[in-house]
């Protein structure tokens, strides 16, 4: 496997963990109605715990793989470079901040309790981890505006996926009932609209500064091709979302429409996790040069 592939394969589940925890905690706090907020937190807790554990296990591996790539050596040889990388590089400094936060996420997720305070704390820590992802991304080379745009892109993606996955978890795992779905689905739809609009604008900015004026770079470069794949996969999710909004939502009171809506929402969630994989690959691919 290429160094880019190695880094992306470790970055993907980490990005999934941080994005989904931030997105679903935001969903539980902002979109789920108060009487059933504990119910949605209960339904999502196993997900948060699993993802926090995954992040805590993978974070040291991400440091090792990153060090091996930076030093251009094998994983075994990279071990001896770890102290220097932590002390002397920007990547090491960012990891020094993110690892304690990842451990805090793990402790919070596994602490008993379902209250909004715990959900808010998880959201805050996952949000801080996403911010640190921006600080070690391509955006760090391009200045403050690029960083803000990158973080905005991450937050919008997390809110979109979190809303969709939160709806699915609440309905399927939490069994919060038909009335809950009727109340929540229109909110998820509204959030999806705004977050996707934000994703497009912030994504266009990043594409603008990564591909340059030449449209052939979309095909000629690995970065361009990965971007096209990511946009196509996201567009597929959008099509499903548009079908949900315009065909299923008007009939959301009917149980058959709810069933189809939940099936589609599950599919959208899986596709978006795939899109995050392409995002991780893109984050480690040199922009067209």
């Amino acid at each position: 496997m290429t160094p880019i592939g190695e880094r992306a394969i470790v970055a993907w589940p980490l990005l999934v963990a941080e994005t989904l925890i931030f997105g679903t905690t935001a969903f539980a706090l902002l979109l789920a109605p108060a009487p059933q907020s504990k119910g949605i937190a209960s339904a999502l807790t196993p997900l948060w715990r699993g993802l926090a554990l995954l992040a805590a296990l993978l974070s040291p591996l991400a440091l090792l793989v990153g060090t091996a790539n930076m030093a251009d050596v094998s994983l075994r040889a990279a071990i001896s470079f770890l102290p220097q990388v932590l002390r002397e590089t920007h990547f090491g400094h960012v990891w020094s901040w993110s690892f304690p936060l990842t451990l805090a996420l793990l402790v919070l997720a596994w602490t008993p309790g379902r209250g909004p305070l715990k959900t808010a704390a998880l959201s805050l820590v996952a949000g801080a981890l996403l911010l640190l992802v921006s600080f070690s991304s391509h955006a760090i080379d391009r200045g403050r505006i690029a960083l803000i745009v990158h973080f905005t892109h991450e937050v919008a993606a997390a809110l979109w996926i979190g809303a969709i996955l939160g709806l699915w978890f609440g309905a399927v795992r939490g069994r919060l009932g038909s009335g809950w779905i009727r109340r929540i689905a229109p909110r998820v739809s509204r959030v999806a609209g705004w977050t996707v609009a934000t994703l497009i604008l912030s994504g266009l900015y990043t594409a603008y500064y990564s591909l340059g004026a030449d449209p052939y770079r979309l095909i000629d470069s690995a970065y361009g091709r990965t971007l096209v794949e990511k946009v196509c996969a996201a567009a597929l999710v959008l099509l499903i979302g548009a079908y949900n909004r315009y065909c299923l939502m008007p009939a959301v009171s009917e149980s058959s429409a709810q069933e189809r809506l939940l099936r589609n929402v599950g599919l959208e969630s899986l596709l978006l996790i795939g899109v995050l994989g392409l995002a991780a690959l893109l984050a480690n691919t040199p922009p067209a040069h």
């Binding site: 080379d141 449209p215 067209a288």
Partner: peptide, 16 residues
């Protein structure tokens, strides 16, 4: 927006 994104833009860095 996609059309606008691929026109009249300078290439920039990320990876030195």
């Amino acid at each position: 927006l996609l059309a606008a994104s691929i026109t009249s833009v300078p290439a920039a860095s990320a990876h030195a």
